[in-house]
Design a protein around this nucleic acid. Structure first.
Length: 577
RNA sequence: GGGUCUAUAGCUCAGUUGGAUAGAGCAACAGCCUUCUAAGCUGUGGGUCAGAGGUUCGAGUCCUCUUAGGCUCGCCA
């Protein structure tokens, strides 16, 4: 496919004294399509050429005539040189490229030979998987997909919260109030029950906290009883998490949680000692970070046990050796921003160059309108509950549609489709906006399936597929439709194909910024443009064979891009709904 | 108090390195199913870009201050 912007930049560069790259950076897409497809602002040239921007634009406009065959015409509006692309050439080129690339559309080899690690999800063992975990899980998966698509060698790491003082508490609580039967039936529910009870009791009897620390010390020493219980809690929890991951279509390459790095901390401690970086402060061993403008980082607590920072530092060293990563991405909430700054700073002091390769991808809190989610207080929405609610509402809508449209959809197919759409709706909610913003959870918004939503994208895709199925049924293969855009391309068609053209760019930008919403917006524009097109002219029922060909080509290209875009987000498209 | 993020339409949000008349969705109102899926489409209304200064040909975007809010600031993760 032609790189239109690049060729334009080369042409303009040849007529001025600025480089290709500079021109490429300056070329922009005008705010309105009536102003053309590309625009070159002449402000910066005005300074060096000592001419008014407008006269420069006029000169450029004249010398550009006939230079490039895809340029239909140019227009000077004040200081801007607006460029209009030949619609036939562009539409044939772009749609042909998409139809040929299929699921490889928007992919690249920029990541060839580069290893990227994405750490995400990372729930705490023995605690319920609630919608607070959904953000990191969904965002992380999307980031994984994006980098994978760009050719990187990507590994998914689930850094389970399977260690720390809280397990001392859990062990203590279990020995006091645990119920084996309840644990076997609903492990996390039972563990949560005794965990909450422990906190209540500890308020009245502070010696419980001491008991918990005792058990954690034993656990870290490898004591059999504590280790056995910990292992049991861990195994049972993972089993429950797996059910959620399966529903979301997520698997991991590595489930090594915090516990895995515990025995790798002594090496970190001795490395720090070798460099004289470890100092004592109030009984704890810390690394001072004044030169980074950061507070000290605790490596060993005053009782000699490790802390999450030390485990994260050990993990960097371990991963560096195992993967020799190009990038190590942490999809973890914003509240931990300082923690990662400290961890990266300490790793830097150890010569691990963390600041050059480790990235904390933070995101906002999920909260109710008036309060925070708190596992301890029990005011949480479970991830499973959220998925079920969305799938349930979807089922109702499909059932109603099935009656109205009198389709032959079986109950089994209906529930399969509802599952995909409901889960798609959840995924979409966490990918639609920039990740920094807090999400105020609302069932109304969650269950709004109009407009800016996954069902809207999925519906559009299903429409495309329906038209294509009908075309095939009447022996028309859209792949045969070559050069369907010889006649006049309408504004609506051109608009849609321009959005399809921008798909690859949106993937690159989304990956670079770790912001799936950039891709989401592109898909939304595509869907809206397609629906407009779909509503305004018949595709199958048209006499003109060229119009039929171009219409089907648009359907084919749109469906390819929409499908691939949704898959990159983690949404499974459906053929009908 | 220090650090950090945020403030754009009634609500939820976009707005690339400063550039053309600040855009979507939802909600509201008015329309469109004898034609390929109405979870759709069309139209209307809706703005002192938190406030004040500054930088310049030009500021929602950059700088300073003020206000409001979120998160965070050593032995939890």
């Amino acid at each position: 496919m032609t790189d239109y912007k690049m060729m334009l930049a080369e042409a303009i560069s040849g007529m001025t004294d600025i480089s290709n790259e500079q021109v490429y950076e300056l070329v922009e897409i005008p705010p309105k399509s009536s102003m053309g497809e590309y625009a070159f602002p002449c402000f910066t040239l005005a300074k060096t050429m000592k001419k008014s921007p407008q006269s420069i634009a006029i000169d450029l406009s004249e010398s550009l005539i006939g230079k490039l065959d895809f340029i239909e015409r140019t227009e000077v509006v004040g200081p801007y040189l607006n460029i209009f692309i030949n619609r036939s050439i562009f539409c044939n080129d772009v749609t042909d490229h998409i139809v040929r690339m299929k699921d490889k559309i928007g992919s690249s080899d920029e990541g060839k030979g580069k290893t990227v690690l994405v750490e995400y999800s990372s729930p705490n063992i023995a605690k319920p998987f609630h919608i607070g975990h959904a953000f990191t899980t969904i965002l992380g998966q999307a980031i994984y997909n994006l980098y994978k698509h760009l050719g990187y060698d990507v590994y998914r790491l689930n850094h389970l919260g399977d260690y720390g003082t809280q397990f001392g508490k859990l062990i203590s609580a279990y020995k006091r109030w645990g119920n084996d039967e309840a644990l076997a039936e609903q492990p996390i529910k039972e563990l949560l029950r005794i965990y909450v009870k422990f906190h209540d009791e500890a308020k009245m009897d502070p010696s419980l906290d001491e008991e918990a620390r005792f058990h954690f010390r034993n656990l870290e020493k490898g004591n059999e009883e504590e280790f056995g219980l910990w292992k049991l809690f861990r195994d049972l929890s993972i089993k429950e998490f797996d059910a959620i991951y399966r529903r979301l279509g997520i698997t991991f390459d590595d489930m090594n949680g915090e516990s895995f790095y515990s025995d790798k901390i002594p090496e970190i401690v001795s490395m720090l000692n070798d460099r004289d970086l470890l100092v004592e402060s109030d009984g704890a061993r810390v690394v001072m970070l004044e030169e980074f403008g950061l507070p000290p980082c605790i490596i060993l607590k005053s009782d000699g046990t490790t802390i999450y920072a030390s485990r994260d530092i050990a993990a960097i060293l371990y991963r560096k050796r195992k993967y020799d990563f190009y990038k190590n991405i942490y999809v973890v909430g914003n509240p931990q921003a300082l923690h990662f700054k400290q961890v990266f700073a300490v790793a830097d002091k150890l010569g691990l160059d963390a600041s050059g390769s480790c990235v904390h991808v933070g995101f906002g809190l999920v909260k109710f309108a008036d309060m925070k989610f708190s596992t301890r207080d029990g005011n949480i929405i479970l991830q499973e509950e959220l998925l079920n609610e969305c799938v349930g509402k979807t089922s109702e809508i499909i059932r109603k549609n099935r009656e109205e449209r009198q389709t032959d959809m079986s109950d089994a197919e209906l529930s399969q489709i509802a599952e995909k759409i409901g889960i798609g709706a959840v995924i979409y909610t966490f990918c639609r906006n920039s990740r920094d913003r807090d999400i105020v959870f609302s069932w109304d918004e969650m269950l709004d399936f109009d407009g800016d939503s996954a069902p809207y994208l999925m519906y559009t895709y299903a429409r495309c597929r329906s038209v294509l199925r009908k075309a095939k049924a009447s022996d028309y293969d859209p792949a045969d439709a070559v050069d369907g855009f010889n006649t006049k391309v309408t504004d609506e068609e051109f608009e849609l194909i321009k959005y399809l053209h921008g798909f690859g760019d949106s993937i690159r930008k989304a990956a670079q910024a770790y912001e799936p919403y950039i891709l989401v917006r592109q898909l939304n524009f595509i869907a809206r443009a397609f629906n407009k097109f779909y509503n305004n002219r018949p595709i199958l029922n048209c006499e003109d064979s060229e119009l039929l060909a171009s219409g089907l080509r648009i359907c084919e290209a749109s469906s390819v891009v929409l499908e691939q875009g949704m898959r990159l987000l983690g949404i499974s498209p459906v053929e009908r709904m």
